[in-house]
């Protein structure tokens, strides 16, 4: 949403509550990628696009109960996780099939990359999907919010130092999973 960043979330929330649906559309533009990433991971096998729609519809209906409109992002992340959890609970399908479906879905999203490149990115995203939940949420939020760690902390409702630690742990774990970490060195 270039050119629209000056408008705060709180203003968009207020305008939505005043009946301006386009303002909620702006909030969608701002957070759809993050919500999509969350539901895709947390409720694999479901149509991530449908779940994303469901998240925003639920958020729209519940917007009146939002106490601090300037924390809309963090609240929406919570909504997305609940929506995903509800669907995961109701799902009885085999988890492995979800991972396969997930990988395909991700690859389809990268049509700008070359085939080989897409393959590699898809593998990387699979590794992200295998991270512990808090770490993968941190990675999602960080890379979908212009690598702004402070913003990530807000969205995760964590302290900055806690967020830094989470991000560092996640990246180190990914490196290890991708076989990038050399032999552990000791001594000076």
């Amino acid at each position: 949403m270039i050119g629209n960043e000056a408008t705060t979330d709180a203003e968009l929330v207020a305008r939505t509550l005043a009946g301006d649906r386009e303002a909620f559309g702006d909030l969608y533009d701002r957070y759809a990628r993050l919500v999509l990433a969350i539901v895709r991971r947390e409720a694999p096998g479901r149509s991530a696009h449908d779940l994303t729609q469901e998240c925003f519809l639920r958020a729209y209906k519940g917007l009146g109960g939002l106490q601090a409109p300037d924390r809309f992002g963090a609240w929406l992340v919570g909504v997305a996780r609940r929506v995903a959890l509800d669907h995961r609970r109701s799902s009885r399908r085999d988890r492995h099939r979800f991972v396969e479906a997930e990988a395909l879905d991700v690859r389809a999203g990268f049509d700008r990359a070359s085939a080989q490149d897409a393959e590699e990115l898809a593998l990387l995203m699979r590794r992200v999907a295998e991270l512990p939940e808090r770490e993968r949420l941190a990675i999602d939020a960080f890379y979908l919010q212009d690598q702004d760690a402070a913003r990530t902390a807000e969205l995760l409702r964590l302290s900055r130092s806690g967020t830094y630690a989470l991000l560092a742990r996640a990246l180190a774990r990914l490196a290890s999973a991708m076989g990038l970490d050399g032999p552990e060195e000791t001594g000076p």
Binding site: D29, R33, L36, G109, Y143, L174
Partner: peptide, 11 residues
């Protein structure tokens, strides 16, 4: 990772 997420478009 930044590349991967950059490629992730909203529907």
């Amino acid at each position: 990772l930044a590349d991967a997420y950059d490629g992730a478009e909203a529907p």
